[in-house]
Design a protein around this nucleic acid. Structure first.
Lengths: 275, 275
DNA sequence: ACCTTTTAAGAATAAATGTTCCATCGGCGG
DNA sequence: CCGCCGATGGAACATTTATTCTTAAAAGGT
């Protein structure tokens, strides 16, 4: 399935000389315009290749496919395959697949293997998900803030805590906003425009956290949000919003990517204030 | 044209609250399955999102597109865009060049790239660092414990918190040991042999944490340790000890691997108690 | 040059897809 | 309680799309 486009290419190269002139023409067109082959209709492609639609169908059938649609599936598969690899620097997918096969599928080991695979996939996508402009803006805000407040509940508290910890290590004035003794809203009211608020929430979103982001944003506090989705209620209440996909294949939200991002953010701020 | 998917995302985020519940549902489905949106038919997508085909068309029109096909073009555009950016699968040199360019990139983006690379390397090593026997033993201890206490300071608090959180989600009785009000030692004395203590510390090791592990271990409390090194002072005071290398090439300790491990541990325990 | 076999074209067809329309449901205000 | 309005479901519709079929053309062999 993954390599079925490669297989098609090989198949094509082998049987090419035996094809009729018109089918050869289609063959080269297909290999030269794989994207069109994936998305366009028979009629469009036929026009592009200078043949009749029926010829496209015959072409597919000559290669052993049931029809054109069947053949097109191969090209579409290639497209999503490449798209999945897009932002990554390395191509870890094969390695992950290979190593998953080695691992026991079930039991604690299998769970660990699954989490590692998901985590690596999430990390691979991470750099493509944060824009340079957003990152720079966030660093600037944090480096210049009087006090940095971090806020996150439940799962996200993990990240919120780390951010506060890491920023404190840089001798920045960072405060972890907790809801201890029900004082969250009162504490949040003390945040001003010269401070900064880093707030994170993944679904299911915590209402309380969102409200704090909302009121602070309305009060012109620079709010930096980390969430999972452009539709997150957090996105609307932030000056800078990072969307970090945490979708896991099987289990609930991965934290590897958010944690890694938080660490990078801390270090980036550290480099900024050194200048 | 190139950024039209990004524009769509922004547009969507802005108008999301004004949409009807069903259209919101479609919106999240669309952003979570952009590939399907690009390739599948309305009927298939509608089934996937749990709505009627007509709703898909209404969705497209609500966003200002003429119809579904018009909207789908945006998703298709994104797909070919990303595919074009993909490192040539056959051209290895391109890939290396791209990778080096990213490495060389300085500033916040470079920091992020470095962390991602380190994190992936750490995750890759992770499964080889935990033995099946240790993992099974830890799962058994946790699944059978009366109360699970987790303890970690400074950086490790991140992981300790998550463990307590995750185990609590399983309806287990998990307590995060904090040193609030200087009560850590007093709280630790309440831990008994039927409980379990998960303690983690990476260097520089926190003396206080190690002492707690030591006294608990001496009192026959099952202690599970996460640390970085076989020589760690924690290793001597634990019944089960996981050594998770957190060495980073350039910056201080990576947390991606420990966090990922903690998540896997939680899920593994969850699977165990289901039986 | 004639017949046979292969090849292409173009219309015809049947399936599928996107779109529209209308009836129904549910909430809200009068 | 009634009527209004937007939202939803579902079927009907028209269009598009892949595929097939028939016919014409070309090529190749004797």
């Amino acid at each position: 399935m993954a390599k079925s486009f490669e297989r098609l290419k090989g198949e094509l190269a082998r049987s090419y000389p035996a094809l009729s002139p018109q089918l050869q023409r289609i063959a080269s067109y297909a290999l030269e315009h794989p994207q069109d082959m994936a998305l366009d209709t028979v009629a469009t492609l036929a026009r592009g290749a200078g043949v009749q639609p029926s010829a496209m169908v015959r072409f597919a059938q000559a290669l052993g496919y049931e029809g054109f649609s069947d053949l097109q599936r191969v090209f579409r598969g290639r497209l999503v395959e490449r798209s999945n690899h897009a932002p990554g620097l390395h191509n870890y997918r094969e390695r992950v697949a290979a190593f998953q096969a080695d691992q026991a599928r079930s039991g604690p080991q299998g769970v660990l293997a699954q989490f590692v695979a998901d985590g690596m996939a999430a990390l691979e996508r991470l750099p493509g998900q944060v824009s340079a402009a957003d990152l720079a803006a966030a660093v600037r805000i944090l480096a210049g803030a009087r006090t940095i407040y971090t806020l996150g509940h439940r799962r996200s508290f993990t990240v919120a805590y780390y951010l506060a910890y890491g920023l404190t290590q840089l001798d920045l004035n960072a405060q972890l906003l907790d809801s201890m003794a029900g004082m969250l809203r009162d504490k949040a009211e003390l945040i001003g425009p010269k401070d900064a608020l880093v707030v994170m929430s993944f679904k299911n979103y915590t209402q309380e956290v969102i409200e704090v982001a909302q009121t602070c944003h309305a009060r012109k506090v620079p709010v930096i949000a980390m969430t999972d989705n452009a539709l997150s209620p957090l996105a609307r209440h932030a000056r800078v919003c990072f969307q970090i996909e945490e979708k896991a294949s099987k289990f609930f939200g991965q934290l590897a990517a958010p944690v890694c991002f938080a660490q990078a953010l801390v270090v980036a701020v550290g480099e900024q204030i050194e200048k």
